[in-house]
């Protein structure tokens, strides 16, 4: 577990620089040096007057389990959102009216965001979930030989999990 800084909240009071025993909080890019940060130390987290430092876990619990009926109806909605995204993208691409293209872009983006949230609620909330690993394996099996598939990166990720 290492500390990380939320730069939007950081008020540059530098208390984390005073208290860090390894200098991990003092860097040129504003983020904490994860290599130098001591596992679980959290001195800077507790010292920060603006609540801008938090701990990032290295391990995560399994996501909450869902009933098959729940997952199934969420998948159905996610599929519908994908179809809406496809329709909006096509309508936009086939028009040369900037205002229609803008509306289609909005529908495309919003549909994707709604779909992502649905996926989040059906076992794919984190990449460390078993469902996400099985998804990667299925993608590799189905599409691994197609041109442009990032097979090496996907294999590395699967191997890191197994």
């Amino acid at each position: 577990m290492h500390a990380a800084r939320n730069l939007r909240l950081c008020s540059k009071d530098c208390v984390c620089l005073f208290i860090c025993p390894t200098g991990a909080t003092n860097t040129e890019n504003g983020q904490i040096d994860f290599e130098k940060c001591l596992d679980g130390c959290r001195l800077c987290v507790d010292a920060c007057p603006s609540g801008a430092i938090y701990l990032v876990s290295s391990t995560y619990p399994k996501p909450q389990s869902k009933s098959d009926a729940m997952t199934e109806s969420i998948f159905a909605l996610a599929a519908s959102k994908a179809e809406q995204e496809d329709l909006a993208r096509t309508i936009g691409a086939q028009s040369d009216d900037p205002s229609l293209r803008q509306i289609c872009k909005v529908v495309e983006m919003s549909s994707r965001i709604i779909a992502e949230d649905l996926w989040r609620e059906s076992g794919y909330i984190i990449a460390q979930s078993d469902a996400a690993t099985r998804l990667l394996e299925a993608m590799l099996a189905e599409h691994g030989l197609m041109e442009g598939f990032p097979a090496e990166a996907v294999k590395a990720l699967i191997n890191a999990r197994r």
Partner: peptide
Amino acid sequence: MDADVRQMTWTELAAVCTN
């Protein structure tokens, strides 16, 4: 219950990945 990759459209697959 897992999503079935073979039944998913390219856009569904993209959305689970961007998530």
